[in-house]
């Protein structure tokens, strides 16, 4: 067994096992931690096939942001996850059936994949161009429009978040920079000579 194959199996098995533990762990905090483990292993798999940029993004975005957000949600919201899971198994027959149908479809798909060459091959990778640079080149040229639309989607999410959650509250002490700048030491600062052993 080559080293690569060994590493692949190790990463893949840990990824699958931790994915199973994400949904079976009783404690939601453990679930999130297993999710992070799963992300790290998936990142390892990406490194293995030479997609180092995707691996980095996975760690930075999913582990660094999404998983931490989940952690906040789990810890700060008062949700009873045990009660949420009650009656979970009632859906097993129908859920299992749907899962089986999807699995059968995927097997069919996989089988036909093995038999046929893709109609149009993907662009070949060039040796002197690393992943990040290659992605950057297509992102800002070929996929420029899509990239811009993604920017607008983010803009919408900002507007939406503000529109749905920002409330004007009265009696809040806000920072007024102009007032801060215009304050002079003489108005606010009093020098006191404090005798030893006495208070002010």
């Amino acid at each position: 067994m080559s080293v690569e194959l060994f590493v692949f199996w190790m990463l893949a098995l840990v990824a699958v096992a931790s994915a199973v533990l994400v949904i079976s762990a009783k404690n939601p905090v453990h679930s999130v931690l297993f999710l992070i483990l799963c992300f790290f292993n998936a990142a390892g798999l990406f490194v293995l096939i030479g997609a180092e940029f995707l691996a980095m993004v996975l760690v930075v975005v999913y582990v660094g942001a999404v998983a931490v957000l989940f952690m906040f949600v789990v810890m700060m919201l008062d949700i009873n996850f045990v009660r949420l899971r009650e009656g979970f198994l009632n859906y097993l027959p129908i859920g299992g059936l749907v899962g089986l149908v999807l699995l059968a479809e995927l097997v069919l798909v996989g089988a036909s994949w093995a038999l046929k060459e893709p109609a149009i091959a993907a662009a070949p990778a060039t040796a002197e161009l690393d992943n990040t640079r290659a992605l950057g080149r297509v992102l800002y040229t070929e996929h420029f429009l899509v990239f811009q639309i993604a920017g607008f989607v983010l803009l919408v999410s900002i507007i939406g978040a503000i529109a749905l959650t920002l409330r004007e509250r009265v009696g809040v002490k806000r920072q007024d920079i102009a007032r801060q700048v215009h304050r002079r030491p003489a108005e606010t600062l009093v020098l006191e000579r404090v005798e030893p052993g006495k208070g002010v």
Partner: peptide, 16 residues
């Protein structure tokens, strides 16, 4: 890709 992104840009404001 253009289809998917445009569809998202159309739907996201509607949810809000």
């Amino acid at each position: 890709l253009g289809l998917y992104m445009a569809l998202e840009l159309q739907s996201l404001p509607l949810y809000v």
